[in-house]
Design a binder for these strands. Structure first.
Lengths: 118, 118
DNA sequence: ATTAGCTATATTCGATGGGATATAGCAAGC
DNA sequence: GCTTGCTATATCCCATCGAATATAGCTAAT
């Protein structure tokens, strides 16, 4: 019998665009680890184009860039800025707070009544 | 200067499908008010087809239907079942708990650093 | 019986998102 | 100076989503 899986999505919008959400947060982390947009994209199994577009949106939505980029092979790549780290940490903190806040009887009820067929 | 708008999305998955999320919860409420899928769809500005598909998914994902339907003009329509009301109430409670849990300095930081341009 | 308005379903079409691909420019190492 | 692997961008193609449309069956009121 399949039980319900909770998925919580936090997005912060800036007008029409999504300044940060789950995908962008993950990408930010991946860039921090990988040191470049291209390597982060490969690690996440996403196209460079998509990763670049996400970074571009983030950088445009915030008061200052979350990711700094430099062209070139050995000297090039991308780094997460100080603001980027702050934003990421705040986003993760929000996720954690929301997640723990939801533990309770309502969630258990919902998960309990999820489909006993297939 | 545009400030960030928070959007919190709670989804409960049953395998591949979404058993309930923000759109289905709103639809459930609209059906409760309108008394039919068709009227609810009109009220929400969505096609009957889409509304029906959402209802179908909900009914299949849960242990018992959240919406009971009856064909026909005057005697027909759709009602939210007791389980449907429970699920909706629980979902709304989860939303409220998560929303209030997120109020704090992290959220304020995020909203403060959202784009001062355009 | 006819009509109205619902459920239930198939088909078609247009918009959108994202992958794949192709350049072009740049910086460091060889 | 050549190569490599990054950034930055345009183009094309395909899959998916949902609106629009078209039936068909049902039920109650007229």
């Amino acid at each position: 019998m399949i039980r319900g899986e909770l998925r919580l999505t936090i997005r912060i919008h800036a007008g029409e665009e999504i300044a940060i959400g789950p995908g962008k947060a993950d990408l930010l982390e991946a860039i921090g680890r990988a040191g470049s947009i291209a390597a982060a994209a490969r690690a996440m199994g996403m196209s460079y184009r998509r990763a670049w577009l996400l970074v571009d949106t983030m950088n445009r939505c915030f008061a200052a860039p979350l990711v700094e980029t430099h062209p070139g092979n050995r000297g090039g790549g991308a780094q997460v800025t100080e603001l980027g780290r702050e934003v990421l940490a705040s986003y993760r903190a929000l996720q954690a707070k929301a997640r723990t806040a939801m533990d309770g009887e309502e969630l258990q009820l919902l998960q309990r009544v999820i489909g006993p067929r297939d």
